[in-house]
Simulated assay, not measured.
Amino acid sequence: MTGRSSLLRPDDVIDSILQITPEFLARRGLRGLLLDLDNTLVPYGSYEEAAAAGMFRWARDLLDSGIGLYLLSNATGRRAAFWLARLGFHGVGLAGKPNPRAYRLALRALNLPAQQVGMVGDQLFTDVLGGNLSGMHTILVRPLATNALPHTRVARHLERLVLRRYGHDWKV
C-alpha cells in the first residue's frame, strides 16, 4: 500500500518486547531503539518495579550487546523520570509524539541515523506514525494492559481497523 495510509503501517508487529533480540535487530540493520513507556515497557500507570523485572533484564541484555536505547514517551516528565532512574539509559517524557522533532532529538542523543533505529511502541497514531515520518523502522507491540485513557480506547478501535487492512487481526 502506498500513500498516506502507509505512514500508519508498522514494519513489524509483535506480541512482546522480549521478541526483540540482538539477532532480531541485526537482521533489520538496527543499532538502536526508541522505546515508548506505557503499555510497551510497563503497564499504563504502573509503578511496580517487581513486575518489570523481565523488562529490566531485556533492556540490560540489549545494552550489553551494544544496542542504544532511548525512552521516548508522552507520559509525564515525573513518570518518565521514575522509570528512567531504574532503566539505565536516557530519555524524555512529554515527548510530543508523533511530532518528528521529538524523534530527531532522540536520534541525536543516540548518535545514530534514522535508518539504524527502530521505534517500538503500542500505538499506531503516535509511535508508528512518528517513527515512519522520521524514516525509522517501526515495531508495533501488543499493549501490556487494556487500562487506558478514554482517548486511547477510541484510538484502539481505529487502530484495529487500520491493522486489519494490513493483514493483522489481533486486538490492540
Rank of each mutant, 00 (worst) to 15 (best):
7 L>N: 09
9 R>L: 06
11 D>M: 02
13 V>R: 11
14 I>Y: 04
16 S>T: 15
17 I>Y: 00
19 Q>N: 04
20 I>F: 00
20 I>R: 00
24 F>M: 01
24 F>E: 04
24 F>P: 04
27 R>V: 02
30 L>I: 14
35 L>F: 12
35 L>W: 10
35 L>K: 10
35 L>G: 07
36 D>C: 08
37 L>P: 04
37 L>K: 08
38 D>R: 08
38 D>K: 08
42 V>L: 06
43 P>F: 02
43 P>H: 06
50 A>L: 05
52 A>K: 07
53 A>M: 05
56 F>K: 02
58 W>Y: 04
58 W>H: 15
58 W>D: 02
59 A>L: 13
60 R>V: 01
62 L>M: 02
64 D>R: 13
68 G>W: 02
68 G>D: 06
71 L>G: 05
71 L>T: 12
72 L>Q: 11
73 S>E: 08
74 N>C: 08
78 R>P: 00
86 R>W: 09
87 L>Q: 10
87 L>F: 15
91 G>S: 14
92 V>C: 15
92 V>A: 15
92 V>H: 07
95 A>S: 13
96 G>N: 08
104 R>F: 13
105 L>Y: 08
106 A>E: 09
110 L>T: 07
115 Q>N: 11
115 Q>G: 10
118 G>C: 12
118 G>S: 10
122 D>V: 00
124 L>C: 03
124 L>P: 01
128 V>L: 04
131 G>Y: 09
135 G>K: 12
138 T>C: 04
138 T>I: 06
139 I>L: 04
142 R>I: 00
144 L>A: 09
146 T>K: 11
147 N>C: 01
151 H>W: 15
152 T>N: 07
152 T>E: 14
153 R>P: 02
155 A>G: 03
157 H>C: 07
158 L>C: 13
158 L>E: 02
158 L>Q: 01
158 L>H: 09
162 V>D: 06
163 L>K: 08
164 R>P: 00
165 R>T: 09
165 R>L: 07
166 Y>P: 00
167 G>N: 12
168 H>D: 14
169 D>A: 13
169 D>Q: 14
170 W>R: 14
